[in-house]
């Protein structure tokens, strides 16, 4: 079960590449690898625990107001995360600034709540949330490595521009993430189409 959840969330149904969710935060934070990592970790924390809580409560939540309830739970966990890093990791909290609060509006969390946690047992929901966050973080880091290398000539702040090439300001700006994510989705689509053609849908 764990393996299939992992494969599904990271590859088959990757939240960013296949479901096209979480794009807004991707555009915003991926110009630096460090911000992408912390954003990814914050999302993993928030989506995992929100899914867990929602799954525990799933049989008690009135159907009509389930989305409000989901939002309330998500917001509570994100505020908690914000408080914890403000108190224990003030430097990182300062670097992230307003991004942490924005995790609340990340569509992936509500997507997992609606699509999975609402119908599945707690442990599976927790893992589903964590893996979905992992799939998101992976894409973020891939885009961030490309953008930071080309835009600043650095990775995680370390200089990698050994040839002294001119850096591209466009890579630092949000539109670059649009181009890159488009190309990445394109590549993944080609690979998936080939897999499906060759294996006849081996993963079902």
């Amino acid at each position: 079960m764990i393996r299939s959840l992992l494969v599904r969330n990271i590859w088959d149904e990757n939240q960013v590449l296949r479901q096209i969710l979480g794009i807004c935060s991707l555009l915003a934070v991926t110009n630096l690898v460090r911000n992408s990592l912390v954003m990814g970790l914050g999302l993993i924390f928030a989506v995992g625990l929100s899914s867990l809580t929602i799954s525990y409560l799933r049989n008690y939540i009135p159907h009509r107001i389930r989305m409000i309830v989901q939002t309330l739970i998500i917001a509570a966990w994100v505020i908690l995360f914000d408080l914890i890093i403000k108190a224990h990791l003030p430097e990182i909290s300062r670097a992230l600034g307003p991004y942490v609060g924005l995790i609340i509006t990340n569509c992936i969390i509500m997507g997992r709540a609606e699509a999975f946690a609402q119908k599945n047992p707690p442990l599976a929901s927790l893992l589903d949330g964590i893996f979905a966050g992992l799939g998101y973080m992976l894409v973020l880091v891939i885009i961030a490595v490309i953008r930071e290398t080309m835009g600043f000539g650095t990775i995680l702040g370390f200089n990698v521009n050994f040839l002294g090439l001119e850096t591209w300001t466009i890579m630092v700006m949000p539109p670059a993430a649009f181009f890159l994510i488009g190309v990445l989705i394109w590549i993944v689509n080609i690979i998936m189409a080939r897999q499906a053609a060759a294996g006849g849908g081996e993963r079902g």
């Binding site: 409560l57 939540i61 009135p62 107001i65 409000i68 309830v69 309330l72 739970i73």
Partner: peptide, 10 residues
Amino acid sequence: YTIVFMLVLS
């Protein structure tokens, strides 16, 4: 039930 649930949860 809906109202009580929401109040308690909040």
